[in-house]
Design a protein around this nucleic acid. Sequence first.
RNA 1: GGCCCGUUCGUCUAGGGGUUAGGACAGGAGAUUUUCAUUCUUCAAACACGGGUUCGAUUCCCGUACGGGCUACCA
Length: 502
Amino acid sequence: MSSKVRVRFAPSPTGPLHIGGVRTALYNYLFAKKHGGDFILRIEDTDQNRLVPGAEQYIIESLKWTGIEPNEGVGFGDGVHAPYRQSDRKASYRQYAEQLLYAGFAYYAFDTESELDQLKASIANFKYDANTRELGKNSLTLSSAEVAQRLSNNEHYVIRIKLPADEDVKFYDEIRGWVVVNSSQMDDKVLLKSDGMPTYHLANVCDDYVMQISHVIRGEEWLPSAPLHVLLYRYLGWEASMPKFAHLPLLLKPDGNGKLSKRDGDRLGFPVFPLEWTDPKTNEVSSGYKQKGYLPESVFNMLAFLGWNPGTEQEIFSKNELIEAFSIEHIHKAGAKFDFEKAKWFNAEYIKKLTDEALAVLVKDLVTAKFGEQESDYLVKAAGLVKERLVFINDIEHFGYLFQATEKYDAASLAKINNIKDQFDTDAFDNLLQQFSEADGAVIETALKDFAAANNIKTGDMMKFLRVGLVGELSGPAIHDLIKLFGKAETSKRIRNCYSQL
RNA sequence: GGCCCGUUCGUCUAGGGGUUAGGACAGGAGAUUUUCAUUCUUCAAACACGGGUUCGAUUCCCGUACGGGCUACCA
């Protein structure tokens, strides 16, 4: 038996991949890379009624964008265990269900929906289990002749697991330690549905076994059904190669309580999806991290820290550092409320780490769309000038003045700088500009101060005037940097235009 | 309701029988800057509660409370 680490991310294509799902994928990815193992994407589409068109592709695109790339799986190339879509593996599950049937660990159940409803109505807290299955129409209560008859008539049936009445089922969770559940608390779950599709429980266990999955790292919502899965491994004779389990804490709403959900995103003004998603039925658009101007590296880093920590005080980690540092032991047990402010901080940090050239590339399309085509060297310099002011890539749109001069200055701004009108001489200022060398900001700054003094203008007033003239508002990068960026001609033009409106 | 899991500053978390309970985000104050942002300094802020065990519990055990999850022919 191979001891190679093989993990999988197994989402259902029932909608866009939620940020919590991305984190589950991320932890699987980190764990696999850390141990030199395989990371597989398996699509669990056994519920044909809930399939949403485009969801599978969305999942694939999301993993690509965040840099959580499986090395096998739907959309990422086949490995030896293809196919990786459960609907394509449909034929493989029945044999295992039948194996269970013959071994006495499962049975046919013919109960119709209304019959089940009657049982639920007549018995409080009804569940199909060791105590109640004698009430149902199944291969344990019906004669074998009738069972055979019903089967040959193609009557609808499901195959249910037959659980012991009272037995402690114990398993070790890598995050929580030993968990024990008594079988009397569980029910005879359906394994094979009447449409011939397996339920999650059967498909999941069979595929994990067949695909030689070594560790099942999934959300905490699966913890209650893990004992069922353990029993399935046992009854199928696979207990010796059963994967290890690790149930991840859930991501919670930032306000109030409960699991983070699709609706929270736009209600609270931040995305819960990696990529923008348009609902194919309602055309409702949900925002995505990518479109909001997040860097994938930042989302990767931020998500890693939601429920895990390296045990040190370092928070900014490259992908490789994260792989190196990751361990299941440092996964926190309790659910984490999503912290949008922290996500913003991570993003701003990652933008600051970008080179001016890299930032220019990321910002180019938006700038071109909003302010027109820019000369590439100019764009690099402009991007560099406002880099530390950006929280999101898209924030560049707030700095239109870098690319377009203000035509009409607003009255309020003009009123604040009006006091230099009599002292300031635009021709003298142009002469001053001619003396500036290209490179030295400090020289420009000193010259500006001297110019103010020589003309009997307070330095502050002078700067304020230049600032409004150059960018149309009272905040922004250093004046000398702006002059350097704009160049003499553009600087002169903007200042003259502003002065003329005083 | 039943079962399972959890509970350290507002939030993400470190720690773990004896600590000034550490860091980060957010917040306050200050410095730097012609402005804003950045950066730096600094302040405030937590072991849910009650019982044990122990010389000593935030840490271990048991309860309670609270939170979360599950309880489908959904995953």
